[in-house]
Design a binder for these strands. Sequence first.
DNA 1: CCCCGCTGTCACCAATCGGTGAGTAGCGGG
DNA 2: CCCGCTACTCACCGATTGGTGACAGCGGGG
Lengths: 219, 219
Amino acid sequence: MLNEAVNLDSSPGAGGEPERRVRDRGATERAILAAAKGLLAEEGFQNFGINAVARRAGCDKQLIYRYYGGLDGLVEAIGADLGTWVRDRIPEDAGGMFLLTYGDLMERLALLLLDALRNDPLMRRILAWEVSENTEQVRRLSEARSKALALWLDRMRGSLAPPKGVDATAVNAVVIAAIQHLVLAGAAGGQCAGLSLKTSKDWEKAATALKRLVRGVYG
Amino acid sequence: MLNEAVNLDSSPGAGGEPERRVRDRGATERAILAAAKGLLAEEGFQNFGINAVARRAGCDKQLIYRYYGGLDGLVEAIGADLGTWVRDRIPEDAGGMFLLTYGDLMERLALLLLDALRNDPLMRRILAWEVSENTEQVRRLSEARSKALALWLDRMRGSLAPPKGVDATAVNAVVIAAIQHLVLAGAAGGQCAGLSLKTSKDWEKAATALKRLVRGVYG
DNA sequence: CCCCGCTGTCACCAATCGGTGAGTAGCGGG
DNA sequence: CCCGCTACTCACCGATTGGTGACAGCGGGG
């Protein structure tokens, strides 16, 4: 909770002095972006503002206006940064599933997405932000996130085609909705509709139920 | 959307005058509660505060402190009010489903819940609030909401038992999670995971997918 | 060498927030 | 009729918000 994480000028010089910041615009920009992401991930969008970001980044808010054009630009930068999410989340064994059925694939994807979201506080906060507000800021961020998600799904799916007679888009959307809400509810309140979501055993139950549902449709 | 609902002093007297408020504590209390619910439903929890509620109720915020003990008490009152939600949402034909299978029942329940939430902005906002914050305020409200939901489900279910070999609690929680997130995403951004959620045709697609998933598990 | 521009800091602005204490206005009972 | 209780309003508090203009200090190019 205490500041730290801001101390990017931990030069080995005599400690404790006023410690003038080095003049390095690139580093400052990165520090601001990191502060924004960290703040959003840890505190949520409620107290996400110019002052808070500047405080956490350890610089003056004026720099945020100068370098990012205000909070909007900063949010946009965060959105752009989400592109890396895909790169980081593609397991290396993605190619190892080329002879699975669509059902196998979707089950696997669902569980992977569940885990990925469970371990990504920033993504969770953005998700919560999306369903809570409908400002321009959020819309941009939302677009970036959903694009990243779509790209991820695309990469993972490979060239497997869904079975006929099923509106795969809709079914998958419902499954993804379930995953997202489970993760959000679990992170926020530790439960969802009477199902506890705290221990890993709880999550296994949820995962099993999720598998059953997916299998029930895709076989 | 405009204020109204607040206009409890629409006495037939000459309109436009300063229109002194009648001294009626009960009416004022009700006006405050209504203002709070309306504000929460229409604006969301972001700008939900003492000042905003007082402004909308057309009275001094001091009265909120006096009558409800501050925002916390007011939120609690909203929570208590959610008990009525159940009463209002029990269709009269609830008894007409006594010989359905569990699958029929859950399908019906899922669709009913979907519609109920789609038409209840207040419930939606509370839901969004729940997954966005974890303060004491929200926790109380969340508890009231989930209790209301549980009661509703209970009333609707009647005495039908779930099939064996299935973790009905978990499956149902996942289904409910899907419904809730679909509604939230639809209301906020008009889409979810590539599925548009604007027209009633869109919602039919989602409902169909939901039915498929439920049927896949419960037959 | 000096000066200009870029980086970073500080002081200040109006607006709003939650919260409180003091004071006003009207109704009802003696 | 008047007095007192109660519903209600107003004025003010400190803190924090987003936002801006002016200034300081270092460094590189003329």
